[in-house]
Design a protein around this nucleic acid. Structure first.
Length: 511
RNA sequence: GAUUGGGUAGCUCAAUGGUAGAGCAUCGGCCUUUUAAGCCGCUGGUUGUGGGUUCGAGUCCCACCCCGAUCACCA
């Protein structure tokens, strides 16, 4: 509305409307009101079935019987509503294709079969209008099941569309328009609705898995006085009544752990995080994450849980443990577990401890080794050389502890962190730890982390003293897990950009 | 933030620096089984925005806006 504040004026002064096509629709709107005496933005309609349901009620035998003997009509009658996506007037017979969230159905309006005003209205309606039709189902000569609108008041206008529809053949392709005007995208490209229906089913299945494993779903603050739990820049905001600076959360982690302290044995949250970082195919500033914490569990207990989540979704929502993603097939029946350093050697062909060869390799990848210690440089080379090979589900384990300062270390190998990252299709899908529950170690790590930060970071990253106090009360040993839900949905819906699984991805204002 | 490709009719796309076009949609006409219906006819444009070069700019130059891709940050 805000971009067209003068709609009513435009209707009365069509010469001010720059677009003739829109003016045509306005004129039809007036005709529908004046000549047909119909409200073009109608009322409640009862007894509707979805277009897909209507298709299912087609009775072939009844159709054949009626074709042989017109007096014998036992064809089921359906009442349907949908948006017009095709409209063909053939003199005294009108075909139109309707679309709703369930699918498409063709409707035919015959001049012989309906009253004259209904027929004229069926002729007048535009692509994009929403109509209601009622009639028996029969196949056409070319075999398409069609609702034949007949009888009294069997064709009605429900809503006049005053906007211009996308092309019926090429549809809506321009990605900018698709994301900005998702409502157009949804009716022009039916797979969009299917993707988001699937998204709903996936999240529902994940909840079912988590609940059946005994996890309690909770909701923790999204407005936080300290943005903790991850290394990312937060969005800043302000509470007026309390005159208080707040941050949109970058992770729920520190609150979920407080709940473990409070005595909940297994908790999870599926909700939005907000990170003030760049945008690309796998990053949106607000994204949905599953975080789960299991008291008395560890890295490996949440690894089993992770497998179960992916396998249940693949099997129950997508129908198979093997799912296509682009040109490849992902096999969720087989999760590899590979050590970080072994993967390095596997894809680089030299000992990870050989510093000279590492520097040489880094230079060949245009990575500047200056000022980086061995592990840091190793990690940059690792990301450059290993990640691109992690196509099938792979848990990367045994990270060097120096790369994960906030993670518990292996009791018998203190240089190794108890952490995994799950990679699928070269994307990071999950991240998990055996959680640090020693309050003194946690505090020391926090303070060391912050001391290495510049002034900008220090403005929003301060030590969460309340969280440390909670840890001093005592948090049981625990496994913690985060799964990127949007990315999981990308995989399961064969979507190659995160924007295709987020209804309204963030866009710059139009210029 | 950097690099790079793009932005032309409602949609999908053309156009050596030389009259801005096509298909579909729209509008008018014909048509009772069409499937991107068909046939006839008519329309439809601030070429993202603002400057500049030129006799002449969609095209060349400069600045800016928006989108995509890659990179950086991040998950």
């Amino acid at each position: 509305m805000s971009d067209k504040p003068n709609n009513n004026q435009a209707a009365n002064q069509p010469e001010e409307n720059p677009n003739e096509l829109l003016a045509d629709r306005r004129r039809k709107l007036d005709r529908i009101r004046d000549e047909f005496e119909i409200d073009p933005f109608g009322q409640r309609v009862d007894g509707l079935v979805s277009l897909n349901t209507a298709l299912d009620t087609y009775d072939g035998a009844a159709d054949e019987a009626h074709k042989a003997d017109a007096e014998n009509d036992t064809r089921p009658i359906v009442k349907v509503a949908g948006r017009i996506i095709q409209h063909r007037v053939m003199g005294n017979l009108i075909f139109m294709r309707l679309r709703d969230a369930s699918g498409d159905l063709q409707v035919a309006v015959s001049k012989k079969a309906v009253d004259l005003p209904s027929f004229k209205l069926a002729k007048l309606v535009d692509l994009g209008d929403i109509v209601v039709a009622q009639g028996p189902l029969a196949k056409t000569k070319t075999g398409e099941i069609t609702a034949w609108s007949n009888g009294q008041a069997s064709f009605q206008l429900a809503t006049k569309s005053l906007a211009l529809p996308p092309g019926k053949f090429h549809g809506l392709q321009d990605p900018e328009t698709r994301y900005r005007k998702r409502y157009m995208d949804m009716y022009a490209n039916p797979q969009v609705i299917q993707t988001f229906q699937k998204r709903c089913n996936i999240v529902s299945q994940i909840r079912t898995v988590m609940q059946s494993e005994g996890f309690l779903e909770v909701e923790t603050p999204m407005l936080q006085p300290i943005a903790g739990g991850a290394a990312a820049k937060p969005f800043e905001t302000h509470h007026n009544a309390l005159d208080m600076e707040l941050y949109m959360r970058i992770a729920p982690e520190l609150y979920l752990k407080r709940l473990l302290v409070g005595g909940l044995p297994k908790v999870f949250e599926i909700n939005r995080n907000f990170r003030n970082e760049g945008i690309d195919r796998s990053h949106n500033p607000e994204f949905t994450m599953l975080e789960a914490y299991e008291a008395f569990g560890d890295l490996y207990s949440v690894m089993d849980l992770t497998e179960k989540v992916f396998q249940t979704v693949a099997q129950n929502v997508c129908g198979s443990l093997k799912q296509p993603y682009g040109e490849i097939e992902i096999d969720y029946g087989n999760f590899r577990r590979a050590k970080y350093l072994e993967l390095f050697v596997e894809h680089n062909g030299f000992d990870h401890a050989d510093h000279d060869k590492l520097v040489e390799k880094a230079k060949s990848l245009h990575i500047d080794p200056a000022g980086k210690d061995h592990d840091l440089l190793l990690n940059e080379v690792w990301e450059e050389t290993v990640e691109e090979h992690l196509v099938q589900p792979t848990f990367v384990i045994d990270y060097p502890a120096s790369l994960c300062p906030l993670t518990k270390r292996k009791p018998d190998e203190p240089e190794i962190a108890e952490r995994f990252e799950l990679f699928i299709a070269k994307m990071e899908l999950a991240n998990a730890y055996t959680e640090l529950n020693d309050p003194d170690v946690q505090e020391a790590n926090f303070r060391q982390q912050i001391s290495g930060m510049d002034d900008e970071e220090n403005t929003f990253r301060t030590v969460d003293e309340d969280f440390l106090e909670a840890l001093r009360v005592g948090m049981p040993p625990a496994g913690g897990l985060g799964i990127g839900i949007d990315r999981l949905i990308m995989l399961m819906t064969n979507s190659h950009t995160i924007r295709d699984v987020i209804l309204f991805p963030l866009m710059r204002p139009q210029g």
